[in-house]
Structure formats: C-alpha cells, structure tokens
C-alpha cells in the first residue's frame, strides 16, 4: 500500500508540474493565479500523502490543515489585490491582437 501512495504522490507532482506550465505561460496575472490556487490545494494532499507514507499522519495533518486555511486566504487576498489593477486585462488584449 505504501508503494501505491508513493506512486499516487508522484502522479500528483507530475500533474502539478503540468499546471505550472499554465502559471509560466500566463498570459495574464489572473491566469497565473488559477494555477497557483490549484497547486496550493494539491500541496495539502501531498503533505497528507507524505504523512501516510511515513506513518506519522497525526503530525502532518495539522500542517495540512494550516496549509489549506492559508491557501484559501492567499487566493482571496491575491484576487482582491489584482482586482484593483485594471491594467492586468489590458496587457493581454494587446498580445491577442498582435
């Protein structure tokens, strides 16, 4: 069962790297924010997988809980922050026309 969990974690990391492509490519700040949000949520899972593989879930679960709460707050704060910057959308329209 431990082998399965390690394989599952590897698959998750591979998919997180795929999501990272969207974070790098953009094209707007908000697009990057989607990728960051998803990678954050999946990091919570990864922490629990590591805890299960090491047989110390009772310790890792608290870290995962904190990480989930923190990720939610970071998403909200970043969304509110970039909402004020109207240039975020204008940059992209120039790129599309060219």
């Amino acid at each position: 069962m431990d082998t399965y969990f390690i394989l599952l974690g590897t698959a998750l990391i591979l998919h997180m790297f795929l999501t990272l492509i969207r974070v790098i490519k953009g094209p707007t700040v908000i697009d990057r924010l989607i990728g960051v949000n998803i990678i954050g949520t999946k990091s919570t899972l990864l922490i629990i997988i590591i805890g299960t593989a090491l047989h110390r879930v009772d310790m890792f679960i608290d870290i995962a809980l904190t990480y989930a709460l923190l990720n939610f707050i970071v998403s909200l704060a970043a969304a509110r922050f970039f909402q004020r910057k109207r240039t975020a959308g204008l940059v992209m329209e120039k790129e599309v026309k060219s």
């Binding site: 707007t28 969304a79 909402q83 910057k85 975020a88 959308g89």
Partner: peptide
C-alpha cells in the same frame, strides 16, 4: 470576479 473587474478578454 477579479478577472471580470479588470476586463480580461
């Protein structure tokens, strides 16, 4: 909402 507000295409 942030994307809609900053008028993303």
């Amino acid at each position: 909402d942030a994307g809609y507000e900053s008028e993303i295409g």
